[in-house]
Design a protein around this nucleic acid. Structure first.
Length: 500
RNA sequence: GGUCGGUUGGCCGAGUGGCUAGGCAGAGGUCUGCAAAACCUCGUACGGCGGUUCGAAUCCGCCACCGACCUCCA
């Protein structure tokens, strides 16, 4: 069941049918992290959103080249009054480390966390410092094309000239160049090096105390933050590629400036589709490194934060994210996490039941059969409608109810065909594991299978006690298991168990 | 101040001009040795005020509140 894929294109402000540049192939660039501190959960949400997009594109059969960069130079501190210091450089100075040590440390941490949340690695993960010559080259090209100028060793992009020439500047973020002048902060206006307040640096002359700098025709310096993405996306995906992604907070100025740089270098738009993921909130406010309103993934897992009452597993959190559309803000609350944790378990238990089902082989096409196939079709249609994970999940949960009813005997296998059962099994595998990227955390608990065998033995002994009406013994076993967070479920065909 | 977006039942969170979102919590019931689990039923929500319409929570206008961006951020 493959539907036409519709994607909300932020550049156009509407949903469009997705048509890749090359049939069957997708080039996707997503802005990665600046590795100067530990990833927080907001970062994780954004990258998880794009992980699902990546997974679904592959599920649809596209050959995807997914590029996600590591920013390891050029990202300046925001406070212009205290000088413009590179974030990595500053961290290195404060911690008395080599800048590359800082980068390595936090990049490792980032990768570990991506693995914990079960994100697929990108196909290419380029680093800004590995592309200095290409960045210098692009700066020169933009100068040659008349859209950048050099001042005291730094090079600035001429936004005014670009706006007048192409009329594109501000289109992505919905800004007008006149407004940008008026809105610019007073201290920016005082930066006399710039011809125009909205101009931005593409090459920056390094201050004497700056640790990271390279030779260039203009100065001993380092590239501007926006430049790296233009350079690396061009290098690995071409001058114009299919999808450019990132958090909505990057829309301006980062993405707007990327568009400008691409036009400045090659006269073309960098990407056909822009996808922006919305923010993770906590207490109704954006989760952000710089203002301290954050929760670290480790705190979330351990429960070691005043914002939550207990720890939540990585997959509960991933499920929590699936319940919200990527373009909506998601407010992190303890209650919502508890609900997500239970919902996740219900889903995994339902899947386990379903995968263990054998059709007796006498099914007919009836209303139930049609209903189930309709729900499956609906789930895929919803995913193809701008990656609507919460809506797809709703259909999946309705199927979970069908599975439980088949198991409990409220519904009969006679009402569905063998093919439909198999299709449902395949759909669950596809959605839960391949598209949503969830893992069954219970599998890790039992590991070698010894636990399963031991449990089978225990439940068999309890069943014997029940047959003998030895309620004391059977309840003792049940209560003891309960104390170990193992729940015994008595069904028509004997007891099963699951971890709570 | 400028630009954009949001306001959905106890909580989280989809969606649509008339047709059940879903999850969690709650109430009643079925099943069960008792439970649990599961299943069934139920609450009948769309910020406020107007307007368009046969009909709006869904479209338009005004108001209120919240948020994001405008400065580094996913």
């Amino acid at each position: 069941m493959k539907n036409e894929l519709r994607i909300y294109n932020s550049y156009k402000g509407k949903k469009e049918t997705f048509k890749p540049i090359h049939e069957g192939q997708v080039g996707m660039y997503v802005c990665g992290p600046t590795v100067y501190s530990d990833v927080h959960l907001g970062n994780c949400r954004s990258f998880t959103s794009f992980d699902v997009i990546y997974r679904y594109l592959m599920y649809l059969g596209y050959k995807v080249r997914y590029v996600r960069n590591i920013t390891d130079v050029g990202h300046l501190e925001g406070d212009a009054d205290t000088g413009r210091e590179d974030k990595i450089s500053k961290k290195a100075r404060l911690e008395q480390l080599e800048p590359m040590e800082v980068v390595q440390q936090y990049m490792n941490g980032f990768h570990d966390m991506m693995k914990v949340f079960n994100l697929l690695p990108p196909n290419i993960e380029p680093r800004a410092t590995g592309h200095i010559p290409e960045q210098i080259e692009m700066v020169q090209t933009i100068i040659d094309n008349g859209l950048a100028y050099e001042k005291n060793g730094s090079v600035y992009f001429n936004t005014l000239k670009f706006a007048e020439r192409d009329g594109v500047y501000g289109k992505l973020s919905g800004r007008k160049i006149d407004d940008l002048v008026a809105e610019s902060r007073a201290d920016l206006k005082n930066q006399s090096e710039k011809n125009h307040p909205s101009d931005f640096a593409i090459w920056i002359k390094a201050a004497p105390e700056h640790l990271m700098h390279w030779h260039s025709p203009w100065s001993e310096g380092f590239p501007g933050w926006h430049l790296e993405c233009s350079v690396m996306s061009t290098k690995y995906l071409g001058e114009t590629f299919d999808i450019h992604g990132g958090g909505t907070d990057l829309k301006f100025p980062h993405h707007e400036n990327e568009v400008a740089q691409s036009y400045g270098a090659c006269g073309c738009a960098p990407a056909n589709y822009w996808i922006h993921g919305n923010m993770l909130l906590m207490n109704g406010r954006k989760m952000s490194k710089s203002d301290g309103n954050t929760i670290m993934p480790e705190e979330l897992f351990s429960g070691g934060s005043s914002h939550i009452s207990k720890g939540y597993s990585p997959m509960s959190v991933r499920f929590f994210m699936m319940q919200t559309h990527y373009r909506s803000t998601l407010d992190l609350t303890d209650g919502a996490l508890q609900a997500a944790e239970k919902g996740y378990r219900r889903l995994m238990e339902g899947n386990k039941l379903l995968q263990g089902m054998q059709h007796p082989g006498n099914g007919n096409v009836g209303d139930l059969d049609k209903e189930i196939n309709g729900l499956i079709d609906q789930a895929f249609a919803d995913m193809s409608d701008d990656f609507n994970t919460p809506k797809a999940l709703a259909s999946i949960f309705e199927l979970v109810t069908k599975v439980n009813s088949l198991k409990g005997g409220q519904l009969s296998f006679g009402e569905i065909t063998v093919e439909t059962l198999q299709r449902m099994q395949q759909t669950f595998t596809d959605f839960i594991f391949n598209i949503f990227g969830l893992l069954d955390e219970d599998i890790d608990v039992s590991g070698s299978g010894v636990v399963d065998e031991l449990m089978a033995l225990v439940l068999d002994m309890r069943q014997q006690a029940r047959t003998d009406k030895n309620w004391g013994t059977s309840d003792k076993i049940r209560d003891a298991l309960k104390a170990m967070n193992i729940q015994v479920k008595d069904g028509k065909d004997g007891a099963t168990w699951s971890k709570e």
